[in-house]
Design a protein around this nucleic acid. Structure first.
Lengths: 199, 199
DNA sequence: GGCTTATATGTCAAGAGTGACATAGTAAGA
DNA sequence: TCTTACTATGTCACTCTTGACATATAAGCC
């Protein structure tokens, strides 16, 4: 079973979906940390059905083309449950943007500063979007978020990770741009003061 | 030109290296955010040489097998410089561990808590290692780090990103484990108090 | 009727990356 | 002498992922 397979099962464990619906959810990042295109999803659904992890039924629609709606099986759910607590084989992180920083000493300063400012803005925008989502979730899912065995909690948990990720990335971009422009790194929501880590 | 090609050029812009040396550096994460195996590196070196980005000379060794030492060309360096400030096409983040969190509501609580505790420890260990490196760099490269056009600054910059990344990841794991064990998330190096972001 | 857009499902070629296989020189130790 | 380990360079089959190609229904609009 592939990781993509589990991403799909993760969605189907919450609701029955067609390949098209799955594609839209996977475009918007499943749990914000996986994605796939329809060209990968349709063949994977066939493999999942072949393996007995899902079944499908054709739903005839009058105002749209007919569709295949997929449902997770008991075996699929068991497999998914087992996978969730299995420690993943560590895969290397690949981040082209950070890799560029490794050669930033060769770059034109003005261009480099602009690059980091812009990338920082992109992450701040993503962060702002996530924060909005979080505010909405905390309002709409108040009770659900008190227990960790609700799908709402799980969605919220991955969103938290997204928020932390974007925040950290945006801060680093700001620090890079400030450094390149030879300013003191901007003081924004930072504690510092101690000095143990050698400012 | 592939991203791997630029990763290799980034290393060769600092020093001449053999495929074997490159492999060892790529195993330890180039700039901490890219990696490759020798089976990918050797063919890529051939392509780079074919494209005129690098040249090689055979160095005969008496106490070891002979080796090919690669050197970046002027064209290679120009290409690398241009690439550094080019905004990368955004590629989706894929993180299997975070994806698992999306289905954590299905999991056995005890197993899940252990998973997040252990993964958190792994990131804390990596963080501790990075912090040691940072301390060493700040001692050994004092002057070099004052200007952003030194390779030392660039190395330090990617390390900073690694530190931020691991810190954030470890914190999220801790929050997950605490939530699953139904404790109040542990208070550790956190500011809070404001409340604007809706604690 | 023709155009665009959204829904809906598929295939295929090509590239990136991995793990396994393959070969060989040299040093050190049993 | 044999084995092990490190250095050193390569190939190959396979998987994952993408972008392009392909087809079809249906609604809305001009």
């Amino acid at each position: 079973m592939t990781t993509l397979g589990y991403a799909i099962l993760g969605l189907l464990s919450r609701e029955d979906l067609s390949g098209y619906d799955l594609t839209r959810r996977m475009a918007g990042r499943v749990g914000y940390f996986w994605s796939a295109r329809h060209s990968q999803i349709y063949p994977e659904l066939a493999r999942l059905e072949d393996g007995g992890y899902v079944t499908h039924s054709v739903v005839e629609q009058s105002e749209r083309p007919d569709k295949k709606v997929y449902k997770i099986t008991a075996e699929g759910l068991d497999d998914l449950k087992a996978w969730v607590t299995q420690p993943p084989v560590p895969r290397p992180i690949r981040d082209e943007f950070t890799l560029k920083a490794y050669s930033v000493w060769l770059a034109d300063k003005e261009e480099a500063a602009r690059l980091y400012r812009e990338e920082g803005l992109r992450h701040e925008e993503q962060l702002a979007h996530y924060e909005e989502l979080r505010a909405w979730m905390q309002g709409a899912w108040r009770e659900d978020l008190t227990s960790t065995d609700s799908p709402e909690f799980a969605t919220y948990a991955t969103l938290r990770r997204g928020i932390g990720y974007e925040k950290e990335y945006a801060e680093w971009c700001r620090w890079m741009a400030d450094s390149i422009e030879r300013r003191e790194p901007s003081e924004k929501r930072k504690k510092s003061k101690s000095g143990k880590n050698g400012g």
